[in-house]
């Protein structure tokens, strides 16, 4: 192959994203007659997310599955994608992709910071609070120490919902829960079987506070070196794989739910989300991205 891209993600090899990225790699290879090759690395083998992003900015032929909080380091507006209850469904994500204002941020990210977004319609599902007591209102979260990724967007969002965010590495969630150093975590369903979480927490509370949207990024310099038709193939297939895997993850959830209930976990689904949504607004205020949210909503024609 003339072009080889090494693609890194922090999820495990059994996460549906891994298979989806490999599927993407295969389709791209087929359509370019093997001239553009993508090698997929799971479990952050090539390094932590922030390091890889710094590398691809310098033209290293690597890519990374990332989120709005990380990209918000460079173009602040992307942080809004990680705000609480920012979007409510996959359909909205597909509409976001086509918004002109998002396109201007994407261009700024590419031109000023050298980061090229290939697509961002990869959705891991809703994040829920996983605790040892049922949660039905923001008050129930009061005083609970909840593990949350360290970026400010995440921390402020979880704080706004009523909990006390605790920044810990992803790998320490299991032992911290087991030792009761934290009272819970907020994760997607797919994380539960990955970490055997039924051994250490009892409730999944379906608060749906984030729809976890991922961005697939490569270096702009590397991207520019590709022939125009290769660039199209790369982004087209990225979107296609994202659509398929997001749907697949949604379908998997039913199976995971059955499995974890069989293993003794309780799913709390009778939650009135309105008070949570109201509480979450404070995060946008505190992070100074309330206007960004309003702008997007007006372009989407949403009244919220």
């Amino acid at each position: 192959p003339t072009y080889t891209l090494r693609y890194n993600h922090v999820l495990g090899p059994n996460h549906p994203y891994h298979a989806a990225l490999q599927q993407w790699a295969q389709r791209v290879s087929e359509r370019t007659n093997g001239d553009l090759q993508i090698l997929v690395f799971h479990s952050a083998q090539l390094g932590v997310e922030e390091d890889i992003i710094e590398q691809l900015r310098q033209g290293v032929p690597v890519g990374q599955n990332t989120d709005g909080a990380r990209l918000g380091n460079y173009v602040r507006e992307f942080g809004v994608f990680n705000g609480p209850y920012f979007v409510d469904s996959y359909q909205t994500v597909e509409r976001l992709v086509r918004l002109p204002v998002v396109q201007t941020w994407t261009d700024r990210l590419a031109n000023q910071y050298g980061i090229r977004i290939l697509c961002f319609n990869w959705v891991q599902g809703y994040r829920h609070f996983m605790t040892n007591k049922p949660i039905r209102t923001p008050q129930d979260l009061q005083g609970l120490r909840i593990r949350t990724p360290p970026a400010p967007v995440w921390q402020e969002s979880v704080r706004a919902l009523g909990a006390t965010p605790v920044a810990l590495p992803f790998g320490e969630i299991y032992s911290a829960l087991q030792q009761r150093a934290i009272d819970g975590a907020e994760l997607v369903y797919a994380n539960i079987p990955d970490m055997s979480l039924w051994e250490v927490v009892r409730y999944v509370n379906e608060t749906k506070h984030f729809l976890l949207i991922n961005f697939q990024v490569v270096g702009e310099a590397w991207f520019r070196r590709l022939p125009a038709n290769y660039r199209n193939i790369l982004t087209e297939e990225c979107r296609r794989a994202g659509q398929a895997v997001s749907r697949q993850i949604e379908e998997n959830e039913a199976r995971i739910k059955q499995d974890i209930q069989r293993r003794g976990m309780t799913i709390v689904s009778d939650i009135n989300l309105a008070p949570f949504q109201q509480a979450g607004l404070a995060a946008y205020q505190r992070l100074g991205i309330f206007d960004v949210r309003r702008l997007i909503y007006s372009q989407l024609g949403l009244e919220r």
Binding site: G12, S43, Y174, S196, E199
Partner: peptide, 18 residues
């Protein structure tokens, strides 16, 4: 236990850490 190596193996290989 606790063991960093076993936690790594269990979480990557989807084997019960307990």
């Amino acid at each position: 236990p606790p063991s960093i190596g076993l936690i790594l193996y269990g979480s990557i290989g989807q084997v019960s850490i307990g």
